[in-house]
Amino acid sequence: MKQHHGMTSIVKNTARLVSGFIAVFGLYVALTGHLAPGGGFAGGVILAASGVLIVLAFGRRFSAKVITDRAVHIADAAGAGVFLLVALLGFLAGAFFANFIPTGEPHHLKSGGAIPISNLAIFVKVGAGLLGAFMALSAFRLTSKESKT
């Protein structure tokens, strides 16, 4: 049972410190996806990794209160929905997925038109989706362990 209440306080404190930085780095990778290697998917995976770190350090019982099923579902659906919406808004510029926002100057953060928005949507979708999958797997493990004891 001990592991469900998390690891030692050294690990917990380290994880608490580090996970915020990891999440911010994920956001950075997603935000500069149109300028540098990376993008929404890579950023989302990093975001999910920070969540996974919390789950590992603090145990499933605690993290399930912070990262609820419902929040994961909503974030996942919202990310996908926004991505689809951006694609549909492309009809404003004449075609499905067309870039309907002025693309601006290359190599600036504010460039690329609709691409950064799509990247952010993918960031949320992938982060929530991966974290949700991980939570689901950890829940499965918990019940199977408990049924044995």
Partner: peptide, 28 residues
């Protein structure tokens, strides 16, 4: 021509809206 992508967009969009609606706090 604009209708063609909708064949994929409409069900996908409806699926995402459905998941979000089913989980929204006010509705759940």
């Amino acid at each position: 021509d604009a209708l063609v992508p909708l064949l994929v967009v409409v069900p996908f969009g409806a699926a995402f809206i459905l998941v979000a609606l089913a989980n929204l706090p006010g509705l759940a």
